[in-house]
Structure formats: C-alpha cells, structure tokens
Amino acid sequence: MNQVNENSSHSGSLKVEDLYFSFSEHSSSVVDILKGVTLEAQRGEITSIAGPSGCGKSTLLYLMGLLERPGSGKILMDNMEVQNLSDRKRTIARNQLIGFVFQFHFLIKELTALENVRLPLLKNGTDRTIANQISSELLDDLGLKNKVHRPAYKLSGGEQQRVAIARSLVNSPNYLLADEPTGNLDTQNSQAVFELLLLMAQKLNIAVVLVTHNENLAQQSDQEFRMLDGKIFT
C-alpha cells in the first residue's frame, strides 16, 4: 500500500472517487455497472447504500472490499490508493483491514462457530490459544456463549449471522462491509443485527458500509446514499 495520495479526507475513512466498473456479458456487449460513483464512509459510523436490485450496490461493495478491480477511479483507505494493489497485498488487506458480512452469512458448515470466527486470526498468524480466546470473547459479546462449539449448520439463521459478524470483526478491521446482512432475517432479528453493527461501529471505531433494501434501517444509519442505474445520490 505505497500509493499514498494526500487528498483531504477524514483520517481512517474509506472513500471511492469517480469509480467506474463494467463487464462484458458475452464477447461483444459491455454492461456499465458503476458510472462515476463517489462516496466516503467515516469510521465510527454506519453508511448505508440503498437502491433497487441490479443498480450496482453489491458491486460497489466488492470493489471497496478489494474483491474486484475497478475500470477506473480511486479507492482510498486511510488516504491510500488501494485499487491497483497486487493480488498478494489485496489478500493481506482483506484479512487485516476489511471485514465482510453477507446476506447468507456464508459460514463453513464443516467448522464450529468458534472455528469459523477464528479463521481470519489464524490466517494472519495469531497464536491458536490467543485466537481461541479472542474469538470466544467476541462470540460471548454477541450472545453466543453457549454455541461456541456448535457446528455452524446447527445454528439458527440469526445465530449464524451473528457468527458471521463475529468473524468479520475478529481481526479488528478498519472497515466492515455488509451486503444485505438482514436480507434473510425477520424484522426483529434485522433490527437486532443493525443495532449490533451500530454498536460495533461506535465501540470499535469501524467504518460500516451497509448495503440494504430495508428503508427503515437505511434511515437509521448515520449517512444514507441511494443508488440508481450505477449512479449514487445522497
């Protein structure tokens, strides 16, 4: 991450500037997904992005999470340009700076709750005992004290989503990117997950970017954006 750009921005924020992204549907036709998107997510806050299906919300999130490369534009993490990092550095950044939460929680069903949560820690070389301790405490904080050693597939939907959130937070990331994290939950669980994200954003000083269809949750966030046809509006 040596491409430092000293633009004026809040310290530790996650920012995208004039971001374009497109892909070829077949061999000839090119579909433009993002058309010059600019936004900034501050640490300690929840930034929500709402919009209809197919407008490019998730793609924007994957670009911010370094899962894809933009056609043009900049992605800045703590004022450093990261869009052109090598695959190896992007992998390290995903492990150490970014946490993901997906709609279908995406746990590895062969592993227990604890084993799922500790994966990012073990990946970055944390000692197994310490990783177990940190992961257990986090699961405890999220109300899963008695489910630590339960296989992921034996947890309820809400519990699985909390385990996924614990996994995304375990490495103390700067940025938490949540793609429809409540899309598969009922109203009560959705509100609980949102409050949990808000609490974590404030407690751990994380910039949370929340992609959601839920208008109610979007309105509760600190900053609200809307997307339509690859463009973003405040």
Partner: peptide
C-alpha cells in the same frame, strides 16, 4: 465454491 469465496474474502490467497 461458496466456501472458497468466503475464504478468499477473509484473506486466503489463491495458493491457500
């Protein structure tokens, strides 16, 4: 494939 995507998103490389 889904598990692979998860692993990649939490910092596992192609080699891993």
């Amino acid at each position: 494939t889904r598990d692979i995507a998860i692993l990649r998103s939490i910092g596992f490389s192609q080699t891993d």
